[in-house]
Design a binder for these strands. Structure first.
Lengths: 349, 349
DNA sequence: TTGTACGCGTTATCAA
DNA sequence: TTGATAACGCGTACAA
């Protein structure tokens, strides 16, 4: 059998409750017994049974993490491990453990979440992305269970603590950067519009055009759900327009890599023939050819702040709802240049 | 307060133990009461408290996962999310939860593992890679706690259930493939030799050369710890040798991508001037330029078998120690060709 | 087939 | 400052 608090107690000649107090580092306990107990613990190699502790204290020191559905391509995106790293770091600092969950369908995921919550396996939950109708969010709100969302909620913004970038502004700046270089024909390539992050970035793109007095053309906007096949075709069509864009903003570096390859196959050179700005600034961005100018959104920090603030909510029940905006910055590399004369409407000197 | 087994019992007019039996789907319970109880559970929205259950049953339905140290570059490697996906899938199928741990140092990690094990948070552990002197492994063996290792143990091979590829053979085949194309000057680029996987692959490389009667040249072998700066320099030096290699085997696709870029900067064309075979066949391999011929090691399966077999060990205490070898296969893409005449020792027709 | 009673290892309350 | 003692919610031998 395992060594319990009782064993320690009898070895140290004190009551179990005293040992418990020593573990909790209670202030009202004599230094003498404290040492005595600690030594006994050491000697026996004692470690508290967390299940018993959780049961008695009605709290686990753990946070739950809902991962993207395992079929999801998002899993392959370098975004995921990085944000996980951040979450993990924030948890570790406060001595919280991490409990993960996935599922192949919406139902499976919801079920797993309910299990975690009602089963009292975790004290709070970090959510990775919200969808338009999110059952998990509804469920958590209804039970008023602590959670923080990484990304922007589709609704109930005021009631959901979330950590996000200012994606509208970020994409606006990225687009403005291209406009500043002299581009006027700028395309947008993003993922599914069901993701809030996509629509935000698209909004930013449109805003930048509007402010510069450039008319948005619907044929310049592409949504590709998949990274490869579908995307390639879309890019091809885009470049076969009568007036193809001289620059592209792509809402994700991973996608941008696919775009880069398709362009290469078409014999279109970057940045000579077309400029590209990526998004997220994952490690890949600097390893691509040419190295990708990309908007760094501080992925690690996104995760770190999420778990850190979640723990604050857990430990202080009247912590206010927060909206945390993580900073971004454009990292210039070699995928952008001024538009070539032949393709722009008027020449630059 | 939360709804407990007692509430269900009183609503259904039975004893708590009966409810417990219904949950466990005990065979010796009348269908009538079973229905009655189930309905009561439904009506109250009952969910068992897992901490109480774990405490009473002395087992959690959870497996622990030790992730690479958070500072580790390995985190950025697409290998990680994929293997995680596999582990997660294997766990989910058996209704096991996943509990994660990281740490910034060896000590932190060991501490976290001890916490998981002694704290009885998990029933078993999946380890991602072993190092030469691995405290975690020693600890788990000493306590004879169920665990399975993904990769090859440095020692105690017979006593550690592990799931791995036959990396020696896989790399031997990859090298032989290049030899078959006519290459004789073949370089090897791998990570730190402290990782068993690196030394295995290097062994395979040497074996292939030996079998073909080609002398191994030490200046053709490179170990780069980091993906970028260090690696670039190494590749440069390699290509400036009097007789530079006409082909390279690279022990990791992610590294191969860096190599590809360095070669591009040097104006060396792939596969015209030099052929490259990568390893792991991550999504990246098909998105690189040129698409990378790579050895698919079935990363998902590695993770899936790991958790699946771990659960077998947990549920059947005299499950034998196993060594599971996951198959591999060379995926041909466009990064290899026959050596060009000027650089090979004799011409091909 | 079902109920009673105890144990799982802690924490927390109340006395001392 | 410390010690009994009662929860915490569930599983399970044992009894009925």
């Amino acid at each position: 059998m395992n060594v319990t608090i009782k064993d320690v107690a009898s070895l140290a000649n004190v009551a179990p409750s005293t040992v418990s107090r020593v573990i909790a580092d209670s202030p009202r306990i004599s230094e003498a017994t404290k040492q005595k107990v600690k030594q006994a613990m050491e000697q026996l190699g004692y470690h508290p049974n967390l299940n018993a502790r959780n049961l008695a204290s009605q709290s686990t020191q753990a946070i739950g993490l809902v991962m993207p559905s395992s079929k999801d391509v998002g899993f392959q995106n370098p975004f995921f491990p990085t944000v996980l790293q951040g979450i993990s770091e924030g948890a570790q600092e406060k001595n919280y453990a991490l409990h993960m969950t996935t599922g192949k369908s919406e139902e499976e995921i919801l079920h797993a979440v309910v299990q975690m919550v009602q089963g009292k396996r975790v004290d709070g939950i970090v959510l990775l992305s919200s969808k338009v109708e999110d059952q998990v969010i509804s469920y958590l709100i209804e039970r008023s269970f602590p959670f923080v969302l990484i990304g922007k909620p589709y609704k109930d913004i005021e009631e959901i603590t979330h950590v996000d970038n200012d994606n509208i502004r970020a994409m606006k700046e990225a687009t403005a950067y291209l406009i500043g270089l002299g581009h006027k024909q700028i395309g947008f390539i993003g993922g599914s519009l069901e993701l809030i992050v996509t629509s935000d970035r698209q909004d930013g793109y449109k805003k930048a055009l509007a402010e510069a007095g450039i008319e948005a053309r619907s044929e310049y906007i592409i949504h590709q759900k998949f990274l490869r096949e579908g995307g390639q075709q879309a890019v091809r069509e885009l470049m076969q327009l009568e007036h193809p864009p001289t620059a592209l903003v792509v809402a994700d570096d991973f996608m941008a890599l696919g775009v880069l390859n398709t362009l290469d196959e078409l014999g279109i050179r970057v940045p000579d023939d077309i400029s590209i700005v990526g998004f997220n600034n994952v490690l890949l961005a600097e390893m691509s050819r040419p190295p990708l100018t990309s908007v760094d959104i501080n992925i690690f920090e996104l995760g770190y702040q999420a778990s850190k603030n979640l723990i604050q909510m857990i430990e202080n029940s009247n912590e206010p709802t927060k909206r945390l905006i993580i900073s971004h910055r454009l990292v210039e590399r070699l995928s952008c240049s001024q538009p070539s004369v032949e393709k722009s409407d008027k020449s630059n000197d």
